[in-house]
Amino acid sequence: MIVDVKSTVLPKILVFSTDSISDPGIDLAGASHMDYSTGAMVISVPCSSGIHPGWILHALKNGFDGVFIAADGTDCPFLEDCTARTGNIVAAAQALLKENGIDPMRLKMAAICSVCSESFVSHVEKFNSVLLKLEA
């Protein structure tokens, strides 16, 4: 049950970032005045391997059109296998979305490092256009 969004309205994207790795990367995008959709909003957590799949479902049921996980990737300060673990979360969340009749395309993950500002912006913009297409 996605809140009906008028197509003129920007898709709302919830970004999960991580305190020490991807959040600084997103900060850098702003500090460099790179523009991205104002619909993208960030919640920062310690590590992407600790994102509960239920939160993703909760977001998509409560006003968000998409969820983007800005993962630690290989730069994770906690876990060597962070990427694999975050991948498992994505898989579990996607199963959960299917069960609830939500397009799994609404969830996206990419590793964003602390200086990956460009890559963050391009991921968000691409994701944004994917979501726009889904709305159409």
């Binding site: 790795i21 600084p24 730069d75 300060p77 990956c116």
Partner: peptide, 12 residues
């Protein structure tokens, strides 16, 4: 040899 991002290691 890990191709870690240097900034990710230094900034913390």
């Amino acid at each position: 040899p890990t191709l870690d991002c240097s900034s990710c290691i230094s900034t913390p």
